[in-house]
């Protein structure tokens, strides 16, 4: 069992998302950074879609009342076990009675804590993801709070082997760190700030030439009113050529829509299923994880790529993750 001593800023159980019910108006939810999420699970021998804790900026304090194998991927929010700094993007063995806490955030905005076996959370509509407004999924439909008790599910044979081996390696110590970690091709927080790649949206042509140019030449700042539903961008206004009414239709993770006042909004994991604002662009799937790690207050720019290129980049990224998955499995066995 894992006791929550302090919940942190916003700590929720998430998985890949709640798919199949968007036609009922049920939002997809799920992790913001799918790449870090999947790798966190791989590092502890889980299936890629097991439930994890999504930790936002200021992490929780957790007391482990059992031995566990964990990993923390995504932003480096300065994890410490029993007061000692531990690494991210690697498997960690943590002994019963040890305490995991987070310090001052170093890079990124969200970290993913995976535990071997995955968190034992009943599925609601095929998913463990927390949908706060509807009060479903996750830990009783809400972010974790002080006093909550989280339980890992049964270990996979792979996780079990890893656990036994590291238990031996740890000896009397409160934890044990793997000597290796996932290199920075995936650790996008260490990247320089390259522009976020986008492709034209369905109503791109509704915008005047100047707005189209500004979209890729100016910088945008993530407003403090941003959340898991969407990033509100300020710094540069975009305007449609004519005031036309748009009938509500489906939107997706990464859709950039522009309300009448001109400040674009990038729709994220907790987006509504449909929207009625003109869609100027769409973030390429390959860059969504990097976007999810940006903090409110940060500035960035966009660069336009083709729909074809976005597809190729996505497939390449999937190939890379599959290769990594095989590499991790070899390391663990």
């Amino acid at each position: 069992m894992i006791h929550v001593l302090k919940p942190g800023l916003l700590t929720t159980i998430q998985d890949f998302g709640r798919y199949g019910h968007q036609k009922h108006g049920v939002i997809a939810s799920g992790v913001m950074d799918q790449e870090a999420y999947r790798i966190a699970n791989l590092l502890v021998g889980n299936g890629q879609h097991a439930p994890v804790l999504e930790i936002t900026l200021m992490g929780p304090v957790l007391e482990f009342q059992q031995d566990a194998c964990i990993s923390i991927c995504g932003g480096d929010l300065t994890p410490m076990i029993n007061g000692e700094r531990v690494g991210t993007w690697k498997p960690l063995y943590i002994k019963q009675g040890s305490e995991l806490r987070f310090g001052k955030p170093k890079t990124g905005f969200r970290a993913y804590l995976a535990v071997a076996g995955g968190f034992n959370i009943p599925l609601t509509m095929n998913s463990a993801s927390t949908y706060i407004r509807a009060g479903i999924g996750g830990y009783h439909g809400r972010p974790v709070e002080k006093g909550d008790v989280l339980e890992p599910s049964e270990l996979s044979p792979l996780s079990n082997r890893v656990m036994e081996q590291w238990k031996a390696d740890a000896g009397d110590a409160g934890f044990h760190e793997a000597s290796w970690y996932v290199g920075h091709a995936f650790n996008h927080n260490g990247y320089t700030k390259e522009p976020i790649r986008i492709m034209p949206g369905r109503e791109y042509d509704w915008f005047d030439k100047e707005s189209q140019n500004r979209l890729t030449s100016e910088t945008f700042k993530i407003d403090s009113k941003s959340d898991r539903m969407g990033y509100r961008l300020t710094g540069c206004q975009l305007s449609a050529v004519e005031e036309r009414d748009l009938l509500s239709e489906a939107v997706a993770f990464g859709t950039i829509q522009v309300p009448a006042e001109g400040n674009p909004i990038i729709l994220l994991a907790d987006r509504q299923t449909t929207g009625g604002y003109p869609k100027i662009a769409q973030v390429a799937s390959v860059d969504l994880p990097r976007l999810a790690q940006m903090r409110p207050g940060e500035s960035f720019s966009f660069t336009m790529i083709t729909h074809e290129e976005a597809q190729r980049l996505y497939l390449q990224q999937e190939k890379d993750i599959n290769l990594l998955a095989r590499g991790i499995e070899m390391k663990l066995t």
Partner: peptide
């Protein structure tokens, strides 16, 4: 999955 709306149906697919 798919999302129907006033005049459209949007179909989400798995590129991989």
């Amino acid at each position: 999955e798919y999302i129907p709306a006033f005049t459209t149906v949007t179909l989400f697919y798995d590129p991989l």
